[in-house]
């Protein structure tokens, strides 16, 4: 362990390469591959045709074997580069394969069958992006519907979260009233009651309200987040009370104080909460899985998991849809990463 400490305290510009520098770089570069590798592999795979996906060993980039339509054969035939017994090379189409002998035909002279040892042929391959993986789910599945459901849930839930949480946070940070501490404790106590604990009775409440198989049944239970109230309240506590006094002297109503003074000044915290909320709601899985049982109501997450659990998994579509599901979160990650990391470091909340 003393070495660990050494490498902690070592400073850059020291005496050349210390072993801890090597550990650091191995860890970092290894991390780069382990963290990004799977996602990159996913994106690469999502452009492969079903045939290419079934290959082993798989190729890293999406290749497709070239095919040719030959006179006298119904289906297009796979093309191969063949080294002929006389040493010359040719591009032939394979008719069938028997054992280690492949019967081939020259597309230009379809009448004549040439027998070739399979060791002497290599498929003619070309890089090809199976964009159909992306376009077909739009027509073949209810993909657009899922996408819309997810967007609707995410946007609506986030907007309601922002309004409702900020109002509560305002009341809890800027007013003195009996029961304030109690309300705050009650909200904090919610942290102890995650969905997994109350899903059975919550389901019965949602059903009683007629919200089963309804997107609102997904949205409403998520919007009174204790985390949101907590983040916003902490921030609002730093807004000086004199501003509110000044606004009251300026004949502002309490509602105006809320939306013309407090809300604009809480913008940075609201932005953080909005980002969190978007990511949370977009990624929600267990609750939508319980509430939504009709296909046309599935969110992306539910739809993906249902399709991937089917007997005949159509991986080429699943992979492409997974990539599409990732896109918003990746965009958030790229553009708003700083917000999120400071938000987490500042509040310790996820």
């Amino acid at each position: 362990m003393s070495r660990v400490a050494e490498f902690l305290l070592r400073r850059k510009g020291g005496k050349g390469w210390h072993w801890t520098d090597i550990v650091t770089w191995v860890w970092l570069v290894g991390g780069l591959f382990i963290m990004f590798g799977p996602a990159v592999w996913l994106v690469g795979s999502s452009f492969k045709s079903p045939a290419a996906l079934a290959e082993f060993p798989p190729s890293i980039l999406p290749y497709v074997t070239q095919k040719a339509t030959v006179e006298g054969y119904d289906k297009p035939l796979d093309l191969y580069d063949v080294t002929l017994p006389d040493g010359s090379k040719a591009t032939l189409a394979e008719v069938r394969r028997i054992g280690i002998i492949s019967q081939m035909v020259d597309p230009q002279k379809p009448g004549e069958i040439i027998k070739v040892n399979i060791a002497e042929r290599t498929p003619v391959r070309q890089m090809s992006f199976a964009t159909g993986n992306y376009t077909e789910p739009f027509t073949q599945f209810d993909f657009v519907r899922y996408l819309w459901n997810s967007v609707f849930v995410t946007v609506t839930a986030t907007l309601i979260t922002l309004v409702v949480n900020s109002m509560a946070a305002f009341a809890l940070s800027k007013y003195e009233f009996r029961g304030r501490t109690f309300a705050m404790l009650l909200i904090l106590a919610t942290l102890m009651v995650p969905l997994s604990v109350i899903m059975v009775p919550l389901y019965s409440i949602i059903s009683a309200l007629g919200l089963f198989n309804n997107l609102w049944g997904v949205i409403l239970p998520t919007v009174a987040t204790p985390t949101g109230v907590f983040i916003l309240r902490q921030y609002m506590l730093t807004i000086p009370d004199e501003l509110i006094d000044a606004a009251r002297m300026d004949k502002a109503s309490e509602w105006q104080i809320y939306w013309r003074i407090i809300l604009p000044l809480t913008a940075p915290a609201l932005a953080v909460l909005a980002i969190f909320s978007v990511v949370w709601r977009w990624n929600d899985f267990l609750w939508p899985l319980i509430v939504l049982s009709r296909k046309e109501l599935y969110t992306l997450q539910v739809g993906l998991s249902i399709y991937s659990g089917e007997l005949n998994v159509q991986w080429h579509f699943i992979l492409a849809m997974t990539v599409v599901t990732m896109i918003p979160v990746v965009l958030v990650f790229i553009f708003l990463q700083r917000f999120i990391t400071t938000g987490i470091a500042g509040t310790g909340l996820k």
Partner: peptide, 25 residues
């Protein structure tokens, strides 16, 4: 950011990515 990246991915996406990586091919 490299190490933080997967945190934002949805559990379903995470599950599918790894299911894909750990399968036979």
């Amino acid at each position: 950011a490299v190490f933080f990246f997967p945190v934002l991915l949805s559990p379903v996406v995470v599950g599918l990515i790894w299911k894909w990586i750990l399968q036979r091919q």
